[in-house]
């Protein structure tokens, strides 16, 4: 599973990245967390409101700092 955190580096994006990493560690799953900061790449995924979270290339949430629990929920739903 590939988890991407999309955002150009504002404080909110860092929180989301941190929550995503914590969620992955807690679930104990094999997943790569990647930060996407290039504006062209972010726009190409259809995101106008960073921070956003994408799993395997599909945007799951944008404009919100998801909590660790919300990230885990999305990951578990995806893994099913």
């Amino acid at each position: 599973m590939k988890i991407q955190v999309l955002g150009s580096g504002c404080a909110k994006c860092k929180y989301l990245e941190q929550h995503a990493r914590e969620a992955v560690a807690e679930l104990g799953i094999q997943a790569e967390v990647e930060k996407v900061t290039d504006i062209q790449a972010i726009m190409a995924m259809g995101v106008m409101m960073p921070p956003a979270l994408a799993i395997d290339g599909v945007v799951k949430s944008s404009g919100r700092v998801l909590t660790k629990e919300q990230v885990s929920e999305i990951i578990t739903r995806q893994a099913k």
Binding site: I39, A44, G46, V47, R64
Partner: peptide
Amino acid sequence: RIHSGEAVIETLTWKDRLQYAWG
């Protein structure tokens, strides 16, 4: 030159909205 992908509009539950608002 940038081509943006199709935007996704997520459906939020009430819990999501309240959590967002508190945050």
